[in-house]
Every structure is written in structure tokens, then in C-alpha cells.
């Protein structure tokens, strides 16, 4: 699958740039990118149908940046607690203060974990609407 994000240089951690046609698209792509960095599906099961678990994610924040960071950190936290790698996201509601989504996860045993991301951070966080869509830049603590 073609990567939907770009890796940027950062000495100690991982910095990426993500794009999206709208906020829903941007938040979905950021979550897909984060789990793509964390893990890859074990090769022998790529085509097989795996059981998925649905997890509802609800977040509130004062602004879009906080909502973005809260969304990613909530997914990291749920992933660790439930032992799931999330691979599909259906955001049913999003504005700059609220988000409701359904995250579909697969048991982590079916994945090869490459990197532990501790958290998404605010440092040099950018979320911009450039007229034709949204672009975000975020640094993950690894």
C-alpha cells in the first residue's frame, strides 16, 4: 500500500507530515500513519480475514490541535490496554472541539511491532488549511 504520510527528519523521535481533504480525512490518515509506523501485519496473514474488534473513541478539546493530539494519544493508550493494532477508522462526527469515531483493531499477535510510540506531542505541531485541504505535522515520542 502506498504510504499516506511523509517522514521528516528529527534527531531522536519521529516527525511526519500528513494530508487530508477535510478534517475527517486528516484525522483518519494521521491515525493510519501512526499505526503503520508502529507495526506491520505478519506476511503470512496479509490476505487472510482476521477478526476485528470495534472500539468507540470519543474526545473533546478546546481547539483542533488539542483534539488532534488527544485523538492520537487515546488510540495509543487503547491500543496498549486492549492489545490491538488499529487499522481502520470511521469518524462519524468531527468539529474543532469534538470527535466520535469507531476504530477497528486486530489482535497485536498478528502484527510485527517495529516501534513503540510513547505519545504524540505538541512540539512544533502544525495543522493548516491550505485552501485545497489540510496538512498536519506532528512529532511522536519514541
Amino acid at each position: 500500500m502506498k504510504k499516506n504520510y511523509e517522514l521528516l527528519e528529527h534527531t531522536a523521535d519521529i516527525r511526519i507530515r500528513i494530508k487530508g481533504a477535510d478534517l475527517k480525512d486528516l484525522f483518519t490518515n494521521a491515525a493510519i500513519a501512526m499505526f503503520d509506523i508502529i507495526a506491520e501485519k505478519k506476511t503470512h496473514i496479509i490476505d487472510s480475514k482476521l477478526q476485528t474488534k470495534d472500539v468507540v473513541v470519543k474526545q473533546k478539546a478546546d481547539n483542533i490541535e488539542e483534539l488532534f493530539i488527544n485523538w492520537l494519544n487515546e488510540l495509543l493508550s487503547l491500543s496498549a490496554v486492549k492489545g490491538l493494532i488499529f487499522e481502520d477508522f470511521k469518524i462519524s462526527q468531527i468539529n474543532k472541539n469534538n470527535l466520535i469515531a469507531l476504530a477497528k483493531g486486530v489482535d497485536v499477535r498478528h502484527y510485527k511491532v517495529n516501534v513503540e510510540i510513547k505519545a504524540a506531542t505538541y512540539h512544533e505541531l502544525k495543522i493548516e488549511n491550505n485552501g485545497s485541504g489540510f496538512v498536519a505535522q506532528v512529532i511522536f515520542d519514541t
Binding site: 528529527h10 534527531t11 531522536a12 523521535d13 506531542t121 505538541y122 512540539h123 512529532i139 515520542d141
Partner: peptide, 9 residues
Amino acid sequence: IHWGYGFPI
């Protein structure tokens, strides 16, 4: 020291 996120490491 190196580049962290917020505080330097």
C-alpha cells in the same frame, strides 16, 4: 543534549 519535544533531552 539533543532535540526532544518541549524540553531538550
